[in-house]
Simulated assay, not measured.
Amino acid sequence: MSSKRKNTRSRGYVAVDYVTVAFAEDRELARQYEELLAANGISAAIKKQDGTEFGSYAVLVSEENLEEAHYMIESERSMDTLFDISFGDDAFTDLEADTDFD
């Protein structure tokens, strides 16, 4: 009697190596990055990081999508920073102080 092993890889399963594209401070931010990437056709995964100096969650993509995913996330971060600078509480307070409504 011989024992045969089934090769699951021959049945359409393709292993994909994921690499970290970004770190997020919390799960909500990691989900936002995941949704941004998914909306642009890039599959992503989230992995909780323990004991690191970076954010608590790693956002992972396939290596072939790394460059495009990195660009999307960096663009999103830039827009968030611009929004915070433009519409942050300090900016509004300064605008109110400089405007005379009388």
Rank of each mutant, 00 (worst) to 15 (best):
E74T: 05
S2R: 12
D26V: 01
T93A: 07
T99S: 10
S75Q: 13
M72C: 00
E53Q: 10
S86N: 15
A24C: 07
F23Q: 12
S43E: 15
I85N: 12
R9N: 11
E53V: 05
A69W: 01
A91P: 01
S2K: 13
V14S: 15
F54V: 01
F83V: 04
F101R: 03
E67Y: 04
Y13T: 14
E35V: 12
D26H: 02
D80K: 15
M79E: 14
M1E: 15
T20I: 13
H70A: 14
T52W: 11
L95F: 09
S3M: 09
Y13H: 07
S56K: 12
D90F: 02
R31S: 14
A30R: 09
V16R: 11
I73W: 00
K4S: 07
K47S: 09
R31V: 10
A97Q: 11
A97H: 04
L29H: 04
Q49N: 05
L29N: 03
Y18S: 06
K6G: 15
T81F: 02
F101Q: 08
V59N: 01
S86M: 11
V59F: 03
A69R: 01
V21M: 00
S62F: 02
E74P: 03
L82H: 09
A22H: 04
A24I: 08
L36S: 09
D26A: 00
R27F: 13
Y33H: 02
F54M: 14
A30V: 06
T20D: 10
R5C: 04
